[in-house]
Structure formats: structure tokens, C-alpha cells
Design a protein around this nucleic acid. Structure first.
Lengths: 225, 225
DNA sequence: TTAAAAATATGATAAAAATCATATTAATTA
DNA sequence: TAATTAATATGATTTTTATCATATTTTTAA
């Protein structure tokens, strides 16, 4: 396991705002954690007591609805910081984090980083800034969920994953999700998600190979009503 | 206009974390603003350059959807701080604020308070904490919008307004909203909102007098499917 | 490799919600 | 106050989405 001071991953998150000294302390107490695909990293109600810095892989943050279905609230990739809120509140987690791929992360105990939150305003401000972005995105989701039809939301989800997380050499989305995951992102029944993806396939907007999805006509997807 | 140091309103928001000195500076530069019912306080895209401390009244924060409809994202009442995000980013507002009642507020220029965000970690941390709560609530809304039927969302909206903002002497909700506002909170068509409220009335869950709404059977509302 | 289980697919139907039309009532203002 | 406008109400209809049923395919594990 490398040193935080020289780790490139932190440049994508608030840890970059820590001083060299602070980073060295963090580095000394962090532990490496690996999670297999499908593994639950933490669950709603769990006390987290630290943050995970994502070195590789993707996970979903979900919230259980009263109807028993999970709703995906956010996807986290390399560079992301997981469990930010545990630094600020003593409440248990309101979200569940589940690995969607093999994941490599560093866990930093809350105790070790809490003092920095008090003493290093640059760090606090950066966390605050990231939280602000999260909130903005979250509010955008509310509007989408409330006002846009399922088909449109699915089209946007595909484009979001395409633009945000990229494609492999063959042009397939790097993040491979089950239809159930798509349903849970879009906020619909699994059958409906499957149906809409089938329709997109028939219309030539996407193509598939097993679970993998390739966007064939991004522009048409953009204009889906 | 009174002094911030002795103002009770700030106890409900992050301004309470400022020192006496800081509060005196804030007090010296703040301006009082009044907004009539229906008045737009700021709009999506506006540069705000400060925060509003709500001394009295209620306003809604909305976001315009691509279908042309507004979605209510949050209601703000006495004690609330409006425009928090303008302190943290230089982006223009992603929300529109509109007065739902006569409003009395104090406006504090960003320039005056920005230094405190750098120097007073208690203040920054409190803002961060509030932002965390906002995010949690926002994510809760995503799940509701995505997973719950309109009727259930309306029932919850009524209970939320009842529990959060109280009733007058006659038992009517203190916040009086148009049916269109209810539609915009719940995320549905105005006719659908009207229809559901009519149904609740028929079933004795609520009663109305003009625009005013009284909750007659909170327990039954809680169990609406 | 094969059997069992899980995921995907698709049809049929029901339920939920939007849209369009048109009253009716309430609020404004000329 | 009357006339106009806006808000609320409700019916009829269409569209969207969920649910239930049942194949088919894919994956997993015995």
C-alpha cells in the first residue's frame, strides 16, 4: 500500500486539501480494503466511523424505499470519497453502499481526520464544496424523478453512465449493470426497465452483448421523449 | 432593524456559530428586505452574492423542469438561511426562491461573511452540517418521487406541512398553498393534485375552507396507499 | 457437463396518472 | 357591482407504468 502523500487518487477528492503533515498521519493509520463485486460495504443504519477513498472500481449508494425496493441515489467511482457524512454527523448511515465491480479502497478512521476538519479550513471548505455539488445533483434528480417519464429517465441514465464513466475498447459502457440496477437507478419496475432497453435496442439506439450495453446513437437517446 | 447579536432568529441557523465580533460586523452591513406574497426573491441563473436570513414568512425553492413545470425542492421558514450555496461556489443559483407569504428577511452580503467561512471553523462546520441534512432530505425525496405513488406522496406532503409548519387556531395548516403548489411539491399534474385532495376530502381525511386545508384524520393519512 | 437457479424477455391485463374538455366557484379589477 | 380572469372541480379519454404470467436465455454450482 502506497503513501497518501504521493497518491494520485486523492487529487480527485477533498483529501488533496490536507497538508503534507496531515497526509502523513492519515497514511500511517489508513487500512487497505478490497470488496468483491456484489459485496455490501456498509448498510443503512450502520455506524461507519470513517471514510473510504476509492482507488479502483465502482459502487452504488442506495436507499431502501418503503415498498421494499432499493433506489440508487449515486454512483461512486475511482477518486470518490465514501462516507463523507460520517465525518460531520454522529448519525448512522442513511445509505447502503454496494460494490458493482471489484473494488479497492483505503479506509481512514474518523478519529484520525476529525481534527483536520476543525483545524484546516481548506479541507473543511473543500468537503463543503463537494457536499454542495452533491446536493445540486440530488435536487436535479428530484426534478427528473418527479417530472420526466421513465423512458426519458432511462435514456438519460445511459448517457450519464456513458459520459461519466466511459466505454471500453469495443465501445461498451465500462460500468456493467444488471437490468435490476438500471430499474433501481431510473426508479421503475425491473420489467419496465427491461422493456425500455429492449425497445431502445429495436430502435437502434443501443446494442447489447449479454449484460454489456453499447450506445449506438447518443443523439437519438438525447431526444427520446 | 435590530442587532444580530441579540436576534433570536439566528439561533435556528448557522449564524449562531459566529462570534460576537463577527456578528457585530454582519449586523453593520446587513440590509432588511421585505417580499410580498408571490414575489420572486431570486431566480435560477441569478448571481446571489449573499445569504438571506428569514425572520418571518415562508418561501419555496423550485427548479424548472424541461417540461416547463416547476418542482418544489424545499420549503424555507423562519430561521432558515437562504442562498447558503452562494457562499461556497461562484456559480449562479440553481434554484428559484419565491415568497409564499409576506416575508421579512435580512440580507447579508457574501463578501462580509466569506472571511468567517475561512477563519471560524465552527461556522464552516455548522454550514457543512446543515448541508448534510439538506442532502439527506433531498435523497429521501428522490426515493419518494421514484418509488411512491402520487396519492401517497400527497398524503405525506400534507403531514409534512402539518408537522413541520403547524396549524392556526382553527386547526388549518398555517402554510396556505395553491393546488398548483401542491402539484409542484408532489410532482404531478395540477388536475391530479386537485383530484386527490378532493378524494381525501370525500373520505374525511381532510377538510377545506377555500384554499385552507385542515387535517381531520392524520392517522388515516399516514396509512394511505 | 448437467441440473438448478437467476436474469432477461415478452405478452396480457390492470392500475395509475396525464391530458383534454368543460363546468363551477372564487378572486380581481375596471 | 359587474365583468373579467384565475383557481378549483370533475368527467371522459388516452397514455404510461405496474403487475402477473410465462418463456427463454444466461449464469452458477453440484
Amino acid at each position: 500500500m502506497g503513501k497518501c502523500e504521493s497518491c494520485i487518487v486523492k487529487e480527485f477528492n477533498s483529501l488533496k486539501a490536507l497538508t503534507r503533515d496531515e497526509l502523513m498521519r492519515v497514511s500511517a493509520c489508513k487500512t487497505g480494503k478490497t470488496f468483491n463485486k456484489g459485496r455490501v460495504i456498509f448498510e443503512e443504519g450502520d455506524t461507519i466511523n470513517g471514510v473510504y477513498c476509492v482507488k479502483d472500481g465502482v459502487c452504488k449508494l442506495t436507499k431502501l424505499s418503503e415498498n421494499g425496493k432499493d433506489q440508487v441515489v449515486k454512483l461512486i467511482v475511482k477518486g470518490g470519497l465514501l462516507g463523507k457524512r460520517s465525518l460531520v454527523t454522529n448519525e448512522s448511515s442513511s445509505l447502503t453502499a454496494t460494490a458493482l465491480t471489484e473494488m479497492e479502497m483505503c479506509f481512514i478512521p474518523k478519529a484520525e481526520i476529525l481534527a483536520d476538519l476543525q483545524k484546516n479550513p481548506n479541507f473543511t471548505l473543500d468537503v463543503l464544496q463537494k457536499m454542495t455539488e452533491d446536493l445540486k445533483e440530488s435536487e436535479h434528480s428530484i426534478v427528473n424523478m418527479a417530472q420526466k417519464p421513465v423512458k426519458k429517465r432511462m435514456a438519460e441514465a445511459l448517457l450519464y453512465i456513458h459520459d461519466g464513466f466511459g466505454t471500453d475498447e469495443d465501445g461498451y459502457l465500462t460500468i456493467v449493470l444488471s437490468r435490476e440496477d438500471y430499474a433501481s437507478i431510473v426508479g421503475t419496475a425491473t420489467e419496465s426497465a427491461i422493456r425500455i432497453l429492449s425497445q431502445f435496442k429495436k430502435e437502434g439506439l443501443i446494442s447489447t452483448s449479454g449484460k454489456r450495453i453499447k450506445i449506438e446513437d447518443a443523439n437519438a437517446l438525447k431526444w427520446v421523449e
